[in-house]
């Protein structure tokens, strides 16, 4: 950086602001992680290192409640993300590989509707809809609402990937006597794999993350992790919440790192 004076990309102060940005993003998370290992029963006084709150999470009196909630969260995310990924892959093929057709622009708006409508509005609309048709809210309604909400998130990486794949590969396949279905299965799908995987992970995390919509459509008696945690926090932040948060945080980071690495290998093999 001896030649900063000559480097037109350099602006004084931008580097410190970037570090400030990182600090602001990570400080709260790191603090919570650290305090989750606090031995003290008071959440503000430091009482030495301990795993007691993790023990509490898994074996304490509230453990069954959180375990059920975690099970619900994971299975809902799995089902919703799988459905959303399949639907999004089909839609991306239509948008990017099917030329122009009637309803294409409208279809595109529709796919993106779930990210354009504020989450709370989606939540209200979905609740009203299910109550109007007399559908009992519960596990199934959460799965449906999450699938809808996850489609545009799964669509983004899938469509981006498909767009980056030159369509001469499929033309070459057709030229070499493959049917359209064989061209999809043998050529497009394998090339799409990293994009589809990213789309699935994205949808999975989005589903796992959701609080507002779930809170509206879950009905009585069923909880996901976020709604269970929210319920607890309303009564004050307990140390076991910090332990659960840390666990969830680790899961998210592992998933994103995985997605990032897969995306990179995908880039390389292109």
């Amino acid at each position: 950086m001896a030649s900063r004076k000559l480097d037109l990309r350099y602006f004084p102060g931008f580097r410190p602001l970037t570090f400030l940005c990182l600090f602001l993003l990570y400080a709260p998370l790191i603090i919570v992680m650290v305090y989750s290992f606090n031995d003290s029963i008071s959440i503000t006084k430091w009482g030495g290192l301990s795993l007691r709150w993790y023990h509490e999470v898994f074996f304490g009196p509230e453990a069954p409640k959180f375990q059920t909630a975690a099970f619900n969260s994971l299975t809902i995310a799995l089902i919703a993300a799988t459905l959303a990924t399949a639907i999004a892959t089909s839609a991306a093929t239509a948008m990017i590989r099917a030329g122009n057709f009637k309803g294409r622009s409208f279809g595109f708006v529709l796919i993106n509707l779930p990210i354009m409508v504020p989450e709370i509005v989606t939540a209200v609309a979905t609740l009203i809809f299910f109550s109007a048709i007399g559908f009992t809210t519960g596990y199934l309604t959460i799965v449906i609402a999450h699938t809808v909400f996850c489609i545009p998130f799964a669509y983004l990486p899938i469509a981006a990937r498909m767009q980056s794949i030159d369509n001469t590969y499929e033309q070459a396949a057709l030229d070499l006597y493959a049917t359209k279905f064989a061209a999809f299965k043998l050529v497009l799908l394998p090339l799409m794999a990293p994009g589809i995987f990213s789309g699935f992970l994205l949808a999975f995390i989005i589903s796992l993350d959701d609080f507002i919509i779930t809170n509206f459509v879950k009905g009585a008696g069923i909880e996901t992790l976020p709604t269970a945690i929210f319920g607890s926090v309303k009564r004050g932040i307990q140390p076991n919440i910090m332990a659960i948060s840390t666990l969830l945080l680790v899961v998210s980071v592992v998933f994103v790192t995985l997605s990032y690495l897969v995306g990179r290998t995908g880039e390389k093999s292109k």
Partner: peptide, 11 residues
């Protein structure tokens, strides 16, 4: 819209 090979199956 590109000249994809699935033209006609869009809907």
């Amino acid at each position: 819209p590109g000249s994809g090979i699935y033209a006609g199956s869009g809907v």
